[in-house]
Amino acid sequence: MTGWIDAVIQGVLLGGLYALFAAGLSLMFGVMRLVNLAHGDLIVLAAFAILAVATKLGLDPFVAVLVATPILFVLGFALQHVLLNRTLGRDLLPPLLVTFGLSIIIQNGLLQTFSADSQRLRSGPIETASIPLGGGIAVGVVPLLTMLSAIAVIVLLNFIFYRTPVGRAFRATSDDLEVAQLMGVDHRRIFAVAMGLAFVVIGIAALYLGLRANFDPTIGPARLLYAFEAVIIGGLGSFWGTLAGGIVLGLAQTIGARIDPEWQILAGHLAFLAVLVVRPRGLFPRAQD
């Protein structure tokens, strides 16, 4: 029984990580209708960047991610402005294929730079610290922080989207690109700001990816799939839905793993497909497709 309760708790907390993966993807789709096939690889790239900053400057990963945040914002802004804005239009193919190409470039660039070795972010005793809940059940501090960060990120994103001028511009651009321009909104700039913001979220996701488990250059695509599944399970257009989707996915994985360790990933995918069959618009739909 303890094992099952533990699996549920771990699953919910794992959902926090997946919500962080998914928030960036959801933001890009929400503002510019971009489905970014390189999303997972960007998370891994950010994890390596944090690792490099942390080792070179001798910083703790939590501090390193703070240092990296403005850099990530600029990188995201530039990526959108220089490359991805060129792919916008009615045709779905250019953004998909350009980000797919980007995914391959990032994976192999990382392979060339950092080798195929597994890496991990080190942050001292906090990594293994846990809070006992009694009855032999304990909650790891890092998983708990992951969940709290996911909630903080979602609150912040909701604040930006619904309480600030730039958030209004995000929503207006997403509603009607042409009329948004009539309002003086430079959509290319707005998209670049959204990507910069998405990159900051990617940086936070990368921090916890690297603290919780080993990572190497090849694991990006799987993170893309988890992020995507969380978005679809939760329902498009709502950041809180994304958190719910992440938790459903996390639960499916840990419960699957509890039955047979080899079934962890498969169970997550099957849960996603099941939701797709039963509720194709997700559990908490909001936006129109």
Binding site: P165, R168, R171, D175, D176, M183, G184, V185, A287
Partner: peptide, 30 residues
């Protein structure tokens, strides 16, 4: 629009995910 020419488009084309007040505020965006 920043030069001082504003268009009220045919069919209104309001932003459906913005409230009435937000629609007005975005008009003053630039």
């Amino acid at each position: 629009v920043k030069l001082g020419i504003a268009l009220v488009p045919e069919g209104r084309r309001l932003f459906p995910s913005l409230t009435v007040e937000e629609n007005l505020l975005i008009g003053g965006y630039g």
